[in-house]
């Protein structure tokens, strides 16, 4: 039934295999009305779903952040920017911003650097059981974060959890309440988060390492270069551009620790693990009288923060790409 829809002014040569083109093949530019119809038909499911559940909510959040509304009553009273003022004046908001950033600083370097070491080890065919190790280290990634959070509560339980029993074994009688003490809770949560998502960063690095041609290593070895020398002068420089991408992905990831925190600490004790997502949740769903406008304002500010960090990183990425291009 279908007609030939495209007249192809065979323009550019076929794209080089396996390499992503930056511009779409020019050939299909023209197209009939029917083709346009098909194109939009294909886009429809995404436009509807994505529009309704991603775009509209973003826009709506901005509106809610300008009203006072408790969710119980129908009334939404327009209050201008006073929600923003209230959020900015709330020390607990800034404390949650700080906690979010500290959490990021605890998690991201550990994940990025330690997983690089592991990836290098696993990348070597000489290492016995490397597939087994890869499986084991990746395993926590696939498990449900919310369930891990709950299980960890028990693992770290100060009266009968295995960690406490282990500490008792080595002579620490008064068990340390790693999650229940505001001094250690955030660090413990960060450690669990590293454990949980370590495998992802490891796989990123392994993919990056595989892009380095083995001839390079061989040539270097023939020249008599030592392992450290090879690592320092071949592996590392070639990995630098990946470092940027991996950092971007990992940092973004640390902003979304809601599942783990909510199920493991709920933001406590005494707000010591209250990342912004939990702060928002608390005011939107968990307050005695929900403050949806206030929570939306906090959410918008959080979005701005994530965006600023994202833009900074995108800029770094761009700079990195440039340097890579100059390198090759």
């Amino acid at each position: 039934m279908a007609r030939p829809l495209t007249s192809e002014p065979a323009l550019a040569a076929a794209p080089p295999q396996g390499k992503v083109l930056r511009t779409p093949p020019k050939g299909q530019r023209v197209g009939t009305r029917k083709q346009t119809l098909w194109i939009w038909l294909f886009l429809m499911p995404t436009i509807v779903l994505y529009g309704a559940y991603t775009l509209y909510p973003i826009v709506a959040s901005y509106w809610y952040s300008l009203v006072e509304w408790n969710g119980f009553q129908a009334e939404q009273r327009f209050v201008g920017i006073s929600n923003y003022r209230a959020v900015i004046a709330d020390p607990a908001f800034w404390s949650s911003v700080k906690i979010t950033l500290v959490f990021m600083l605890l998690v991201a370097p550990a994940r990025i650097l330690l997983s690089l070491l592991l990836a290098i080890a696993l990348n070597s065919p000489k290492l016995p059981f490397r597939n087994l190790f890869r499986t084991v280290y990746f395993l926590p990634v696939v498990t449900t974060t919310a369930i891990v959070g709950v299980v960890m509560q028990f693992v770290f339980d100060p009266s009968s959890g295995p960690v406490t029993s282990m500490l008792r074994l080595v002579g620490v009688e008064q068990g340390i309440d790693l999650l229940g003490d505001s001094g250690t809770a955030l660090t413990t949560a960060a450690a669990v988060y590293v454990w949980k998502f370590f495998g992802i960063t490891m796989v990123y690095w392994m993919a990056a390492l595989q892009t380095i041609p083995s001839e390079l290593y061989e040539a270097a070895r023939i020249d008599g270069a030592g392992a450290w020398h090879i690592f320092r002068h071949i592996t590392l420089p070639l990995l630098t551009p990946f470092l940027l991408i991996i950092t971007v992905l990992t940092v973004e990831d640390t902003f979304h620790a809601f599942d783990l925190m909510q199920t493991m600490t709920g933001g406590g004790p005494f707000f010591s693990t209250e990342i912004i997502e939990i702060y928002i949740y608390r005011w939107a769903f968990n307050a005695s009288i929900p403050q949806l406008g206030f929570a939306s304002a906090a959410a918008v500010l959080f979005g701005v923060l994530v965006m600023v960090v994202g833009v900074l990183q995108a800029w770094a990425l761009y700079a990195g790409r440039k340097s890579r291009r100059e390198l090759s």
Partner: peptide, 23 residues
């Protein structure tokens, strides 16, 4: 009462924070 807003940290939070050494 309908126009009042939740206060945080509340008394219970303060108790928790004081016993835990945060306050």
């Amino acid at each position: 009462e309908a126009a009042s807003k939740p206060i945080s940290p509340h008394l219970g939070d303060i108790v928790q924070g004081y016993l835990g050494g945060d306050i």
